[in-house]
């Protein structure tokens, strides 16, 4: 059992980690806790649904990949969801957060994110209804790994894609001029500005990267679990726990934080009733804030 819980924990942890990257960057560079970030996962998942539905209506792109439940439409849906969610995030930034940042303190942005979260979540409920939806009805057979651990082929894909995304982001942050500018802004916005970094540009990139990560996480959640309007809302605490555990602004911190949260949630059911599982991320948040408020990878300010 412990091996199965570990496998499940790593899989849900990968989704949480992907989703938390954006939250962590927002906390560090935009300097506010964005309670609406989790809704970007929901929107990403439903953008993916729109693409897949349209692709299927147009006759699809033929078959599925080997043992996986999907074919090309889902791969393209991931790209479409990332682009569409990024545009949505940039729109929110332009209409709301950018304007507020100019005139008020960062806590006003937190209130605003409360309101945006309500708007986004309930808009999904209005448009798509409350019933759970699946991308595909294809039945999959679990693969048996050593130690009697069962995973679905889609879950293996999920893990592989997460690793690819993290490596790509690592290269972006360390090799590209924009990535280096982002890290400089995270260190010190004022110093970055006087060094000629276009901070507005950096902020837009934070939204794009965060929203893309959230969208991919959302689609993967939809693929391996199901789509629901509360998909993101239910992940608020796990996402915050991952971002805070890892330390705001740290790519690997967010991913590792996600894995720790996923593992603790899934392993916790061996010692506490399953019904209390949702409280685990909260306990992690309290513990890390108490013992190491800067997070595992954060620097002491």
């Amino acid at each position: 059992m412990i091996l199965q819980h570990t496998a499940d924990g790593i899989l849900s942890g990968a989704i949480i980690g992907l989703g938390a990257i954006g939250l962590s960057f927002t906390m560090k560079i935009l300097r506010f806790a964005n309670f609406s970030h989790s809704e970007l996962l929901t929107w990403g998942a439903y953008f993916g649904l729109i693409f897949i539905s349209v692709a299927t209506a147009m006759g699809g792109f033929g078959g599925t990949f080997g043992p996986l439940s999907f074919g090309w439409p889902l791969i393209l849906a991931l790209v479409f969801a990332a682009v569409a969610t990024s545009l949505l995030a940039l729109l929110l930034h332009h209409l709301i957060f950018e304007r507020l940042a100019k005139v008020t303190g960062h806590m006003t942005m937190v209130f605003a994110s409360f309101g945006v979260a309500l708007l986004l979540r309930n808009a999904v409920l209005l448009i798509f209804g409350a019933d759970p939806i699946y991308y595909s009805n294809t039945l999959q057979f679990a693969v048996k790994l050593p130690g009697n651990v069962r995973v679905l082929p889609d879950q293996v894909f999920l893990l592989g894609l997460t690793i690819v995304v993290v490596i790509a982001l690592h290269l972006f942050l360390t090799r590209s001029r924009t990535g280096i500018a982002m890290r400089a802004t995270a260190e010190s916005p004022d110093l970055a500005r006087v060094s000629g970094v276009n901070v507005n540009n950096v902020v837009r990139w934070v939204w794009v990267i965060g929203a893309s990560g959230a969208a991919v996480a959302g689609v993967l959640y939809g693929l391996t679990v199901q789509l629901r309007p509360e998909l993101g809302f239910a992940l608020i605490l796990p996402l915050f726990a991952a971002a805070i555990l890892g330390g705001a602004g740290s790519l690997y911190g967010a991913v590792l934080g996600g894995l720790i949260v996923g593992l603790s949630e899934n392993l916790s059911v061996m010692i506490i009733p399953t019904t209390y599982k949702p409280a685990v991320p909260f306990l992690l948040i309290l513990a890390i804030l108490y013992f190491r408020p800067q997070g595992l990878f954060g620097e002491k300010s």
Partner: peptide
């Protein structure tokens, strides 16, 4: 500030879990 917001949000979630269970 925002850490307090996250922590208190978590408390409400936990209290609701207790209420249900």
């Amino acid at each position: 500030d925002e850490y307090l917001a996250v922590a208190t949000f978590g408390i409400a979630v936990s209290i609701q879990l207790v209420a249900v269970n």
